[in-house]
Design a protein around this nucleic acid. Sequence first.
RNA 1: CGGGAUGUGGCUCAACUUGGUAGAGCACCUGUUUUGGGUACAGGGGGUUGCAGGUUCAAAUCCUGUCAUCCCGACCA
Length: 584
Amino acid sequence: MPIRLSSLFLRTLREDPAEAEVESHKLLLRAGYIRRAAPGVYTWLPLGLAVKAKVERIVREEMNRAGAQEVFFPALLPREPYEQTGRWTEYGDNLFRLQDRKKADYLLAPTHEEMFTLLVKDLYSSYKDLPVCLYQIQNKYRDEARPRAGLLRGREFVMKDAYSFDLTDEGLEKSYQAQRDAYERIFTRLGVDYVIVKADAGAMGGSASEEFLSPSPIGEDTFVRSPGGYAANVEAVKTVVPKAMNSDGLPAATVHDTPNTNTIDSLVDFANANHGRGHVWNAAHTLKNVVLALTSPEGKRSLVVVGIPGDREVDAKRAEAAFGPNDVEPATDADFERHPELVKGYIGPVKNGNPLLGLEGEAKVRYLLDPRVVDGTSWISGANVEGKHVFDLVKGRDFNADGIADIAEVRAGDPAPDGSGPLELARGIEIGHVFQLGRKYAQALGLQVLDENGKLQTVTMGSYGIGVTRLVAVLAEANRDDKGLIWPESVSPADVYIVATGKDDSVFEHAERLAAEFEAKGKSVILDDRKVSPGIKFSDAELIGVPHIVICGKGLENGEVDHWNRRSGERRALSLNSVVAELA
RNA sequence: CGGGAUGUGGCUCAACUUGGUAGAGCACCUGUUUUGGGUACAGGGGGUUGCAGGUUCAAAUCCUGUCAUCCCGACCA
C-alpha cells in the first residue's frame, strides 16, 4: 500500500521551529520526521521512523554478513554489574539512575559492555566456543550535560554496539578487521562521507582504536589529515621530533633583567627592543613553562610543569589524553602559594645555574618537555626571579627534564607524523568507533574460558559502535538544499513520491494506478493525493526529500507524466507506460 | 558547572520601555473560489501570558523568588 498523504500522520511546518539551530534539525522538524519530547529526547513520526528503519536495516545486513549475531538487552539494568567494573561511580552524572519500589538501584543503560561480557560468561566456557561476535541495535541513555542539535547529541539515542570475544590477540586483530571492513561497507552503502582517524584509546584502556568521522562544519570533533592520507584525531597526533642539534659554539646562558615581561608577548617585545641580534625574536624562541594540576581518580592532586615553545598553547584535550586517567586543570593560585619557588610569569628550568624544575630540581616538581625541545635547541626562558629571564638556555647543555609531554596544540601546517605532508585541521561528526578493548571488562567480570591445555584464560574483547540516530542527522545535514531534504536512495522514506495535481478525478485515478504498478515492482511509494493547491504539494515534496518525484497532472492529456529529480532539479516528461520501467 | 538569551493559542512572533484586562501571520474548522509553485474572499474555534508570591483600584507589562528551554564554553566510548 502506498503511503497516502491524505491520511499520513504528518504536518509540515512553514516556519523554522525556534528550538532548532542546525539546518538538519530544522528540516527534520519542519518536514515532519521527528518531534521533541524532552531536551535531547525525540519522538519518531512515521516518515522519520521509515528512514531510521532503513539505516538500521543496512547496519543489520552488514553485521550479519560479518558474522555477528544480534541480541537484545534490557535498557533498564541493575546496579551490580556496573559496580563490579567501577562504572556506577565512574560514569558520574551522565548516568540516568533510578530506584525501584524497594529502593534498589537501577540505571538506564548508557552502553552494554557489562551485559555482553556477562552474557558470554553465562553461557560459554571453552575456547572452542570462540571467537564469537554479538551485536545490538538499541536505545541508549546518557544524561548529557548539554544535548545538541537535535538528533546529533541526544540523551536517548539508538546505537549499534558490537562486541567480539577472542582467546588470543591475533584473534582479536582478525575480529577487529572484520568489523572495520563491515563499517566501510555500511557507510558506503549509506552514502555517508567518512574518514577513518586514529583515535586515542585512552580511558577505555584498549590498544588499537579508530574513529569514523563524517566531515562537517557542525562536527564536535577536530581531526587532522594530510595530503598523503594520514588522518587522526587531534588527541592522537604524535608530534614529529626534530633531530638533536650540536650545541658547540652556542653562546653561554645569560640572565638578563626583563622587567614587566610576565607574558610571552611582552617578553618578545622586550627582547627585540633591548637584545637585538640581527634577527627578530618571536614567540617560538621562548620556552613557556605551564603549570598543570593533575587529580588522580583517587583524588590525589599533584603539579606538573610542561615546557612548550612559546608560540603554542596547551591543548586541553591532548593534555587529558596524555595524563589520563587524571583530571587536568591549570594550577590555581593556591597551588602557586604552596610552591613559592615557582614565580608566575618567570618560571624556567634553572635558577642560578642549578636545576629548579624536575624531580631532581629545587622545586621537586615533575618537569616534562614538548617533543620539539630536543638537545641542542636554544631558548629564552624564565629565570625564576621576578623580572628576569635566561637567554641562550640550551637543552641538554643547560637543562634537562623528567620526560616528554606531547600536549601542545596541533596547528594547520604542522608536518604529519608519517611524513605525508602538512596537516590540515577539519571538523567531523563521530559516526562510528572501533577499538580493541582488550581484557579490561573480561578481567573485571571474570570472563574466562578453558584453553586446549585445560587452563583458564581471560578472554580479549573488541568494541564496535555506530550511532544510528546520529547517522540520520548526519545524512540529513549532508543531503539538503534551501528547499528541504534530499535523501540518498538508500535511506529515503520511499522510493518514489507521486504528486497528483489537477481538478479532474482522473489524475488521482492515474496516480493510484501508477502507485500500484510501482509497488508491484517492489518500489515503495508516497502518494500526495490531497485536495490542495499544487504549490503546497510541490513545496512539501521538496521538503520531504524523496529523490524521485513523479508529477501526475497536466501531461496526462498527452499520456505523459514528469519525472522530477529532486537532487538535480531536472524534470523530464516520460510516457505513462514507460515511467515505471524507467524508475524501477 | 560558568557565561548569554528567552518563556504570550499547535507554530513563528507583536504588545512590556511609558500598567487599563491580549493581537497578527501560519496551522485548524465552515462556505464560495482556485488547481503545474504555499490562490482569493467571508465566517469561526482555540490563550488562567511558564509557575509562585508581592506592589497597585487595575499586572503579559513593575518587583522578588522559582522552574524550564535554547545558545556559547566546560564536560562527553
